[in-house]
Lab assay of single mutants.
Amino acid sequence: MQRVNMIMAESPGLITICLLGYLLSAECTVFLDHENANKILNRPKRYNSGKLEEFVQGNLERECMEEKCSFEEAREVFENTERTTEFWKQYVDGDQCESNPCLNGGSCKDDINSYECWCPFGFEGKNCELDVTCNIKNGRCEQFCKNSADNKVVCSCTEGYRLAENQKSCEPAVPFPCGRVSVSQTSKLTRAETVFPDVDYVNSTEAETILDNITQSTQSFNDFTRVVGGEDAKPGQFPWQVVLNGKVDAFCGGSIVNEKWIVTAAHCVETGVKITVVAGEHNIEETEHTEQKRNVIRIIPHHNYNAAINKYNHDIALLELDEPLVLNSYVTPICIADKEYTNIFLKFGSGYVSGWGRVFHKGRSALVLQYLRVPLVDRATCLRSTKFTIYNNMFCAGFHEGGRDSCQGDSGGPHVTEVEGTSFLTGIISWGEECAMKGKYGIYTKVSRYVNWIKEKTKLT
């Protein structure tokens, strides 16, 4: 034993070699072989497995989906700052455009905790909710729209109204504003409101030439003092309507412009014939205590009207009353817009006519005020429907199939267009061939041609 100890002390290297040989010859039971080890760690190889990531292109799944990435790591994937920024906006807080917040056709661009709407022409605001041009839906104005110097929408209202708090709607500024039905039992019968379409306001006024200088022999019209197929109006439903009495009662109609003036057809009036105007009328054979009678003290036909040349060209006249009318729910003026808007309103496509005229061709006159909704007829169809001249200051309205029309005794009465609950004068009943005849239409004086003249002559002093 002493000898062994001496050998170990003198030859430590020998001992180490012996131990190493023993270990190498022993069977290893701690580690699995290569094949079995792979069965336990069965993990798919990654895209760049075996390579240094710093030297390969980034992978979106590896960089940002398996674990949260930084902007720089995302930049490695896209290799483009702009594309990385677009991805980053949604990656950080989701897609803010998912709810489609942009209105009126706006395009949404996502941002971090926010979004941006790219608005089409005519709109602005956070969600493109603000109209900035009158060309689109009248700028959301209830009545009139004008573009300011910086191309912003400025709404306005006709006389007797003021802008509401929203700067879009119009509200009454006087007790009985024009064009409004205020009798409670008839307010439910107000005709369907007309909503502004998209309009090209630059070209809204037709490029028409008034044929002022045409000389033409007097034409022989049949029954051209021209509501057939209409309905009984309720008291106060058309408070701007008046009836004219002269040699015979209810020979023509008219509309209240203001307390002192009536507008009617020029062919209705004769110099030297006494005319009485009755406002607030409903049943011409009954006294309903809503009527107001006034005498006409002055007749002003349009300066281009000449019955000797043509009885229905420039067929418009103004009547001055001896005493002002007292405005109330049964006696209310009709609204008159400017030339541009009167023309736009007419193009809405349908209007209402009213009167006490004959209820059928050569038949009896109506006792109760009649009204009828009539569609506008395109000019080409209008011209083809008659052998008589249709001037540019006239328009056609009615039904091709016949059966409904204005008729004798309705002449001078109103053709009105309702705009968001307020009625505007767009025409004056003038003439036609018979009444409600198939293929024939009622012919009306186009008020847009005469609004400046009306307003100039009827100013209240």
Rank of each mutant, 00 (worst) to 15 (best):
residue 10 E to M: 13
residue 13 G to D: 07
residue 14 L to D: 02
residue 14 L to A: 12
residue 15 I to H: 06
residue 17 I to W: 12
residue 18 C to D: 02
residue 21 G to D: 04
residue 24 L to R: 04
residue 31 F to Q: 13
residue 32 L to M: 13
residue 32 L to E: 15
residue 33 D to C: 04
residue 39 K to Y: 05
residue 40 I to V: 12
residue 41 L to N: 05
residue 43 R to N: 02
residue 46 R to F: 01
residue 48 N to Y: 01
residue 52 L to T: 05
residue 55 F to Q: 15
residue 55 F to L: 15
residue 60 L to I: 13
residue 67 E to T: 02
residue 69 C to E: 00
residue 71 F to W: 10
residue 76 E to G: 02
residue 76 E to I: 02
residue 78 F to Q: 04
residue 87 F to G: 03
residue 88 W to E: 03
residue 89 K to Q: 11
residue 90 Q to S: 14
residue 95 D to V: 08
residue 98 E to F: 11
residue 99 S to V: 11
residue 99 S to I: 10
residue 103 L to H: 13
residue 106 G to H: 03
residue 106 G to C: 03
residue 109 K to E: 10
residue 109 K to C: 04
residue 111 D to S: 12
residue 122 G to M: 08
residue 122 G to Q: 09
residue 122 G to C: 02
residue 125 G to I: 02
residue 126 K to L: 15
residue 127 N to V: 08
residue 131 D to G: 12
residue 134 C to N: 03
residue 134 C to H: 03
residue 137 K to D: 12
residue 140 R to D: 09
residue 140 R to F: 10
residue 143 Q to A: 02
residue 145 C to I: 02
residue 150 D to I: 10
residue 151 N to T: 10
residue 157 C to R: 00
residue 161 Y to D: 01
residue 167 Q to P: 03
residue 168 K to N: 07
residue 168 K to M: 13
residue 169 S to M: 09
residue 171 E to G: 05
residue 172 P to H: 05
residue 174 V to D: 07
residue 174 V to W: 05
residue 175 P to G: 07
residue 180 R to M: 06
residue 185 Q to L: 10
residue 187 S to Y: 13
residue 191 R to H: 07
residue 191 R to L: 15
residue 193 E to I: 14
residue 194 T to P: 08
residue 195 V to Q: 15
residue 195 V to L: 14
residue 197 P to D: 08
residue 198 D to W: 12
residue 200 D to G: 12
residue 200 D to I: 12
residue 201 Y to W: 10
residue 204 S to L: 13
residue 207 A to Q: 12
residue 208 E to Q: 07
residue 209 T to Y: 11
residue 211 L to G: 13
residue 211 L to Y: 08
residue 214 I to N: 09
residue 214 I to A: 13
residue 216 Q to R: 07
residue 217 S to P: 14
residue 218 T to M: 06
residue 218 T to L: 10
residue 222 N to T: 13
residue 224 F to L: 14
residue 228 V to M: 06
residue 232 D to G: 05
residue 235 P to M: 08
residue 242 V to L: 02
residue 243 V to L: 09
residue 245 N to H: 12
residue 245 N to K: 12
residue 246 G to Y: 06
residue 247 K to P: 13
residue 256 I to F: 00
residue 257 V to N: 01
residue 257 V to C: 02
residue 261 W to S: 00
residue 263 V to R: 00
residue 263 V to K: 00
residue 263 V to C: 03
residue 265 A to M: 02
residue 274 K to H: 12
residue 275 I to L: 14
residue 276 T to F: 05
residue 276 T to K: 07
residue 277 V to C: 04
residue 279 A to G: 04
residue 280 G to A: 04
residue 285 E to V: 10
residue 286 E to G: 09
residue 288 E to H: 08
residue 288 E to N: 08
residue 289 H to I: 10
residue 290 T to F: 08
residue 294 R to Y: 01
residue 295 N to E: 13
residue 296 V to S: 03
residue 297 I to P: 01
residue 297 I to T: 10
residue 299 I to M: 11
residue 300 I to T: 04
residue 301 P to H: 08
residue 303 H to Y: 12
residue 304 N to K: 09
residue 307 A to Y: 08
residue 308 A to D: 12
residue 309 I to W: 07
residue 310 N to W: 04
residue 311 K to Y: 05
residue 313 N to Q: 13
residue 313 N to H: 13
residue 315 D to N: 09
residue 316 I to M: 04
residue 319 L to Y: 02
residue 320 E to S: 02
residue 322 D to A: 07
residue 324 P to D: 05
residue 325 L to G: 00
residue 326 V to F: 07
residue 327 L to E: 03
residue 328 N to V: 00
residue 329 S to Y: 06
residue 335 C to F: 00
residue 336 I to N: 01
residue 338 D to G: 08
residue 339 K to R: 15
residue 339 K to F: 07
residue 340 E to K: 06
residue 340 E to T: 11
residue 348 F to P: 01
residue 351 G to F: 01
residue 351 G to T: 03
residue 356 W to M: 08
residue 356 W to Y: 15
residue 358 R to N: 09
residue 359 V to S: 13
residue 362 K to A: 14
residue 362 K to H: 11
residue 363 G to Q: 10
residue 364 R to K: 15
residue 365 S to Q: 15
residue 366 A to W: 07
residue 366 A to D: 14
residue 370 Q to I: 03
residue 370 Q to E: 05
residue 371 Y to G: 13
residue 374 V to M: 09
residue 375 P to I: 08
residue 376 L to I: 11
residue 379 R to S: 13
residue 379 R to E: 11
residue 382 C to H: 03
residue 386 T to K: 07
residue 387 K to G: 09
residue 389 T to P: 15
residue 390 I to V: 14
residue 390 I to T: 09
residue 391 Y to G: 12
residue 391 Y to F: 12
residue 395 F to W: 01
residue 397 A to T: 05
residue 397 A to C: 03
residue 399 F to E: 12
residue 400 H to Q: 14
residue 404 R to P: 15
residue 405 D to I: 14
residue 408 Q to N: 14
residue 411 S to K: 15
residue 412 G to S: 09
residue 415 H to N: 01
residue 420 E to S: 14
residue 425 L to Q: 03
residue 426 T to C: 01
residue 432 G to L: 04
residue 433 E to S: 14
residue 434 E to T: 13
residue 434 E to I: 08
residue 434 E to W: 09
residue 435 C to F: 03
residue 436 A to L: 09
residue 438 K to C: 07
residue 439 G to Q: 08
residue 441 Y to V: 13
residue 441 Y to E: 00
residue 444 Y to T: 01
residue 445 T to Y: 05
residue 446 K to S: 09
residue 449 R to G: 15
residue 456 E to A: 09
residue 459 K to G: 09
residue 460 L to N: 09
